[in-house]
Amino acid sequence: MHWGSVSEFFAMGGYGLYVWGSYGVTALVLFMEVVLVRRRARTPTGIAGHTGDYPTGTEK
């Protein structure tokens, strides 16, 4: 273990912005992808009269 304290861990030897900027954005985009795909997989597709295009889901 080479971190003396929690703040030392978050400082990342002065590179905190770069390291956490990388990990933060990665976590965010992966989380967003999962949310969007789960939503898409649950959206009622309805029974369309035609085939071909993607459904728009539940129209308002």
Partner: peptide
């Protein structure tokens, strides 16, 4: 230094 830890992603 520590910035290399970006390598893990």
């Amino acid at each position: 230094g520590e910035v290399y830890r970006i390598i893990f992603i």
